[in-house]
């Protein structure tokens, strides 16, 4: 039982951070029909900015740093949208992939200049860095923080999309951007906002996970692949599908580690293949027209 609990909490925490990154990517794809390979770079920038802001201290400053890092990443996203991404709307997949891969390269090298080659760590404030015991299982408190933030992000997104007029507009853009635009909505401004929100989510995720990972170049490259897997099996453009898929990937990873450690990371690819054999357009996606 204790063992089971440990695995469940660990899986939920992994799935939670994955969900935050992937939700941003899928939101952007849904509204703009643009795939962004540099989304993982935004996540990495969130993490690096966090290391800069937190510095050696912990405590209240930790929480402010998360917010600040996320906001700066959102601003960076806005700049990316204005400079490059808006010209990719309506373009072929290859154009989008190559252009955003180019952004990925540029951001990776720039990060190297700014933060160097070494790995950095962030220490969480003592209030959340310990462990707690429940039903005989000893669990890291910080796992609960990540789960909490992910749930908050999920609820926030749900509320935004279901209960605000901006959210309705975003969903309308997912359904039919042309009708929305010819109906009087400044689509470019809406896209800018969506992209910034997507970047914000990546920034939050990158900043929040810092106490549990070593922050180093290459974070962008590894997270984007997993994120793409989540987004693809969730169904591009579906936030709910993304949440579901993040769980699937998290569970596959955990099960893999338990069953066959040397094949652990293969399991999540098998999950992806399995889903796509049954539903080539993802769990909650719609077939491409």
């Amino acid at each position: 039982m204790a063992r089971f609990l440990i695995e469940v909490i660990g899986t939920l925490s992994d799935a939670g951070s994955l969900f935050m990154v992937a939700a941003g990517l899928t939101l952007i794809f849904g509204a703009m029909r643009v795939i962004n390979l540099a989304h993982g770079s935004l996540y990495m920038y969130g993490a690096f900015l966090m290391t800069t802001f937190v510095g050696a201290s912990s405590g209240l400053r930790f929480w402010w740093s998360i917010a600040l890092a996320a906001v700066i990443v959102a601003a960076l996203g806005a700049v990316m949208e204005l400079g490059i991404v808006r010209f990719l709307v309506g373009k072929e997949p290859l154009t989008q992939l190559v252009a955003t891969f180019a952004l990925f390269l540029i951001l990776a090298d720039t990060a190297l200049h700014l933060w160097g080659n070494g790995a950095r760590t962030v220490v969480a404030p003592s209030s959340v860095s310990g462990r707690f015991t429940i039903a005989g299982a000893v669990l890291p408190v910080y796992d609960l923080v990540i789960i909490g933030v992910a749930v908050a992000v999920g609820i926030g997104l749900w509320a935004l999309l279901r209960h605000t007029s901006v959210g309705w507009r975003i969903r309308a853009a997912v359904d039919d951007p042309e009708v929305l635009e010819s109906g009087g909505v400044n689509l470019r401004r809406l896209n800018l906002g969506v992209f910034a929100v997507g970047a914000l989510l990546a920034g939050i995720a990158g900043a929040v996970v810092t106490p549990q990972v070593s922050v180093a170049p290459g974070m962008d490259e590894s997270i984007i692949v997993t994120t793409l897997l989540v987004v693809v099996i969730g169904g591009l453009g579906s936030v709910t599908g993304t949440a579901l898929a993040a769980l699937v990937i998290g569970i596959a990873d955990t099960v893999g580690t338990l069953v066959a450690p040397t094949w652990a990371s293969t399991f999540m690819y098998l999950a992806v293949i399995l889903v796509l054999v049954v539903r080539p357009w993802g769990l909650l996606g719609t077939p491409e027209r």
């Binding site: 795939i35 997949p93 992939l97 793409l228 693809v232 591009l236 796509l276 080539p280 357009w281 491409e288």
Partner: peptide
């Protein structure tokens, strides 16, 4: 199309 690109990437 895009799904194909992402699957081959995977």
């Amino acid at each position: 199309r895009l799904y194909f690109a992402l699957i081959t990437l995977a």
